[in-house]
Nucleic acid binder design. Structure first.
Lengths: 112, 112
DNA sequence: CAAGCTACCTTGCGTTACAAGGTAGCTTGC
DNA sequence: GCAAGCTACCTTGTAACGCAAGGTAGCTTG
C-alpha cells in the first residue's frame, strides 16, 4: 500500500513526543516502554529506541537510575528531568497547534 | 530551545499528508502550495518541496499539467490521481488513529 | 555449570529535510 | 531590442534519523 510510507513518517514524527509524555509522571524502564509503544504501533524495533533514549538523556531531558530486578538483569528506569518537563510543555503546545493546522487543512478541502 | 528539534520532526511527519490534503479538491501550483505551507509553519524552504512533489508524482499519487501564466513563466498545477485519492483516504484514517493514540497518552499521564 | 532468557547496546544502510546555489521563461525600463 | 530583475522550478551536498541485524552481559533454572 502506497500510503504506508507516509503513515510511518507521521508515526515517527510523534515518537519522541509520546516517549516524553509517557515518562511525564512515571518512572518506566526501557523494555516496558518498548511494549507500550509497540502496542500503540508507534515503534517497530528496540534498536530505534535505545539510541533515542541516549540522545534525550545527553540532551538533559531524561535521566535514569539502575534498579535491580527480582528476576533478571538490572533495568534502567527513566524519568524526566526538570528541563524535560519544560520541553514536554512546549511539545504539548506544538502538538495542539499542529493538530489545529491539520484539522483546518482537512476541513478546508472536505467542505467543498 | 531544546524542544525545537522534536517539533520539527512532528511537522515533517505530517507534511506529506497536508500536501495531499491540500490538493484533494483543487488544482494548485507549486509556489502557491509553498506559501500556504509556510503560512501554516509546515515548511521551511522550497528545496524541500520540489523533490517531494516529484517523488509523489513518480509514485503515481500526484499528476500535473503546465499552465501558461499571464505574468511570468508557466506553472505546474498539481492535482491528485485516482490512486492519490485512495491514499488520502488511508492517510486520513491513519491520522485519526494516531491522533487518538496521542490523546490517550497525553491524557493518561495528565490525569491524576 | 551450561543453556536460555531478559535487558541493553552498536553498526551499517537507506531515506529525507534542509541550506545553498543554479537554470530558464517572462516582463519592464531604457 | 536588450539588459536587469522577477518568478518558478530544480539540483547538489550534508547531516540526522529510523530500521534491520547482530552482539554483549547479567541472571535464573535444571
Amino acid at each position: 500500500m502506497k500510503a504506508q510510507n507516509t503513515i510511518s513518517q507521521m508515526r515517527r514524527g510523534i515518537l519522541e513526543f509520546c516517549i516524553i509524555s509517557l515518562l511525564a509522571d512515571n518512572e518506566v524502564y526501557t523494555a516496558e516502554l518498548i511494549d507500550r509503544l509497540k502496542a500503540a504501533d508507534l515503534l517497530v524495533t528496540d534498536g530505534t529506541l535505545y539510541p533515542l533514549l541516549n540522545r534525550l538523556q545527553k540532551a538533559d531531558i531524561l535521566q535514569y537510575r539502575f534498579v535491580e530486578s527480582e528476576s533478571g538483569p538490572p533495568r534502567k528506569y527513566y524519568s524526566l528531568t526538570e528541563e524535560g518537563h519544560a520541553v514536554l510543555k512546549d511539545l504539548d503546545g506544538a502538538w495542539q497547534e499542529i493538530h489545529g493546522s491539520v484539522e483546518m487543512i482537512r476541513r478546508g478541502n472536505d467542505s467543498e
